[in-house]
Amino acid sequence: MQTITTVRDLRRFVWLHRQAGRTIGFVPTMGALHHGHMALVERCRADNDVTVVSIFVNPTQFGPGEDFDAYPRDLDRDLELCREHGVDAVFHPAVAEMYPEPLQTGIEVPALSTILIGEQRPGHFRGVATVVAKLLNIAEPDRAYFGEKDFQQLAVVRRMAFDLSMRASIVGVPTVREADGLAASSRNKRLTPAERRVAPVIHQGMLAARSLFSTGERDAATLVSAIRSATEREPSISLLSCDLRDSATLGILERVTDKPAVLLVTARLGSVVLIDQLELRPGATEEGEAA
């Protein structure tokens, strides 16, 4: 496995493999890797000849007072995990390498970036879209892999790649969960033991909504109410948002019709903001629903 720190060297690495006719898969991350990230890596390795992982904590997607400095970092462990899972190259640039001068250009998908989490974190998805565009321009992969847990981010990146005719196909990978249902996340490490014990209540509420859906309930307010009822029983969880949206457009739904819908939850537990998602697909069995 190669560890690459400059744009020039990554471009040369990719060019050499392209000359040999190999396909390139790319997994962009901010590090603090866990088994959720490794699910992206395994899917990438299955689909491509060469797997590249980026580890870069992107400052432009953090707003004032947000947790850029507190974001967990453990490069040695990250590199070891990547090595164990057969990654071919890790791109770990410094901030100055990615942003040698103050940015004068930014990318935004307004219809998808200013709602939900984007409403709570103005400018966040502009930072995400811009750094992902830079990474995809540098790595020029055939496919890039993103977790469905960050569902709004996935929607933003998909639309950006489509609108800008980017080379890479954007591949969503189902959410990976802990044994008790909590969505795997780097931020879980910041939960106290007591907070970690109650965190699965969020997913339990989503499962209650899915159970209603499987019996024929299609009213958005009723489905969302099932999640709110579950989280309200745990006073340490503050539900910041809970929505039923169209899976493709993130448009507000009053009822689920014949198109896939997604439940999106953002909650605060102590100092940590947790997000989760669960798709509802008409015609699927409860066991067959995406989780």
Rank of each mutant, 00 (worst) to 15 (best):
L154H: 05
L135V: 15
L136Q: 14
A155K: 09
E148W: 12
V128G: 00
T114E: 11
T114N: 04
A139Q: 03
R143I: 01
K149Y: 04
K134M: 09
R121G: 15
G127D: 03
V132P: 01
R143L: 02
D142Y: 10
H124R: 03
R126Y: 00
V132S: 10
A155H: 09
D150C: 13
I117C: 10
A155L: 06
P122Y: 13
L154T: 09
Q153K: 07
L135W: 15
I138A: 13
Q120V: 11
I115Y: 05
Y145T: 09
H124S: 06
F146T: 01
I138D: 07
D150K: 15
E140M: 14
F125Q: 01
V128Y: 00
E148D: 05
A144G: 05
A155D: 00
P141T: 14
F125L: 01
T114Q: 08
P141W: 12
P122I: 12
L116P: 03
Q153E: 06
A155T: 12
F146G: 00
E140G: 06
N137C: 11
N137R: 11
Y145G: 08
L135R: 13
T114F: 08
D142A: 09
E148M: 12
G118E: 04
L135T: 13
I138E: 05
R143H: 03
V131I: 15
K134S: 12
V132W: 05
S113Q: 09
G127I: 01
P141F: 14
G123N: 03
I117K: 07
A139T: 11
N137W: 12
E119D: 12
L136D: 11
T114D: 10
Q120S: 15
N137E: 07
A155C: 15
Q152E: 03
G127F: 07
A155E: 00
T130P: 06
Y145W: 08
Q152L: 05
I117P: 00
V128D: 00
F125V: 01
F146W: 01
R143A: 06
G147H: 14
V132A: 12
Y145I: 09
F146M: 01
R126V: 13
A139S: 06
V131R: 03
D142V: 07
G127C: 02
F125Y: 07
I115M: 07
E148C: 11
L154R: 08
H124F: 07
L136G: 14
H124C: 04
Q153S: 04
P122Q: 03
L136H: 15
L135M: 15
K149F: 02
K134L: 13
G147E: 07
G127H: 05
L154M: 07
V131L: 02
A155P: 00
L154Q: 04
Y145H: 11
K134D: 08
D150W: 14
L154S: 09
G123E: 05
A129V: 00
Q152M: 04
D142E: 12
Q153C: 03
R126Q: 10
